[in-house]
């Protein structure tokens, strides 16, 4: 990235965060320092290693494919910022 300000604008857009100009400046400086620190991993010799995504000795855990009751619609909609006619109401998409 050319500068820490470009970096912060780029990742904020990817992460769907709308930052104020003050936030862009502060986060830009802080992220620049943090990225510089964490990039020390690039100097480590990792030849012959496989990446670890988790430490579990498990693969593909599946349950029996049997129907069971879920949570009630009304209960789930109770936390919605806006709901209408048994559905989540969202801003116009098209």
């Amino acid at each position: 990235m050319d500068s820490s300000l470009d970096l912060v604008r780029h990742v904020a857009r990817l992460a769907r965060l709308e930052l104020t100009p003050e936030e862009e400046t502060t986060f830009g400086r802080q992220l620049g320092q943090i990225v510089e620190y964490v990039e020390q991993v690039q100097a480590v010799d990792t030849s012959g290693l496989e990446p670890t995504s988790h430490c579990m000795p498990l693969v593909n855990v599946v349950r029996a494919d049997e129907p069971s009751p879920g949570l009630a619609r009304q209960e789930l909609l109770a936390n919605a910022p806006r709901a209408e006619a048994g559905m989540f109401r969202v801003p116009k998409i098209l």
Binding site: V38, E39, V41, V44, T46, L49, P51, T52
Partner: peptide
């Protein structure tokens, strides 16, 4: 360079 290298160093 970041995430995958992180996973490799995690293995180390």
């Amino acid at each position: 360079a970041c995430y995958q290298q992180g996973q490799l160093v995690r293995s180390r």
